[in-house]
Simulated assay, not measured.
Amino acid sequence: MLFPHTETDRVALRPAGPQDAPEAYRILFELGAAGLPVLDAFVKNFGEGLSACFLVHDKGTDEVVGLSTVSCATSAGHARIEVHLAGPAAAELAGDVHALTVNFAFAMWRLRKVYVHRTSPDAAELGLGTATADLVRAEAVLPDHTYFHGRLWDVHILAVHRDDWNTHGVPLLKQIGCLRR
């Protein structure tokens, strides 16, 4: 049985509520997120359509370095996660945050798949290291699907299946320091 871990040795996912909307907006704005509404609209609708929303804290500095979300589950047993990390340690922390978010989704809901949408086809950028090949499957490409920074981008849909997570996820969680507590 999976446990919804929210911390590793390096990061902590802390639940985000309406009071955290300006901080979440700051992160998305800093990253140049496409389609970001004005702050008042973002605050008013913060958390809508989400089952879980976290601010990501770097445990070394306790600084808020990101936002991690899980969408509401579909009737087919799918949810989408989004991880947005800012700052110099973003690449270093990406694996921990993706692993925690995927694990949280599978631990909390009866999901078959967790999706990640990216403009890059490179699943290695999720930061899961050698576990990437065992965990992440490319499922689709939506050509010229989104527009930002002055151009059209493909959207690559990657999936983590529950069976793969059940087999390879726990060793990954141990590796990143989730299960030593």
Rank of each mutant, 00 (worst) to 15 (best):
K174E: 15
T167W: 01
A24Y: 08
V56H: 04
A107G: 10
L126H: 01
F148S: 05
A94L: 00
L142W: 13
R118Y: 08
V65N: 07
L36I: 10
F46K: 06
E30D: 14
V97Q: 02
C72Y: 06
I176C: 09
D20R: 05
L179W: 02
R80V: 11
S51W: 06
M108Y: 04
E63W: 07
R137D: 03
D62H: 05
W109I: 04
F46L: 05
A33Q: 12
D164I: 02
E30A: 15
D134G: 08
C53T: 12
C53I: 14
G17W: 01
A138R: 09
T119A: 06
V160E: 11
K113I: 05
H168P: 00
P121S: 08
G35F: 04
G49E: 10
D96S: 00
K59M: 06
A90S: 13
A123V: 12
S51V: 01
R110Q: 13
M1Y: 08
T6K: 12
E125H: 11
L142M: 13
V102P: 01
L13K: 00
A91D: 14
R151E: 15
V170P: 15
T8S: 15
Y115P: 01
N166H: 11
P37N: 10
G32M: 12
G35N: 15
R14I: 14
G77K: 06
A76S: 14
G77C: 08
L135C: 05
L13A: 05
T69A: 07
V43G: 00
V11S: 00
L28T: 03
N103P: 04
V11Q: 04
A94F: 00
L50D: 10
A99G: 08
R10L: 09
D144S: 14
P171D: 05
L67M: 08
T130K: 15
E48C: 08
L100K: 03
R110M: 10
A133Y: 00
C53H: 15
H78A: 11
D20N: 10
A138Y: 03
V70Y: 02
T119Y: 03
D134P: 07
G150R: 12
P88D: 13
L173P: 06
M108P: 03
G127A: 07
D163R: 15
T101Y: 13
Y25M: 05
A90E: 00
F106A: 07
K174L: 09
D164N: 10
T8Y: 04
H149P: 01
A105H: 09
L126F: 12
L158F: 13
D96A: 00
R80N: 11
W153F: 11
H78E: 15
A90L: 03
P121D: 02
A90G: 04
E92C: 00
G129I: 12
P15K: 05
A73E: 14
P37F: 04
A140P: 07
E125R: 15
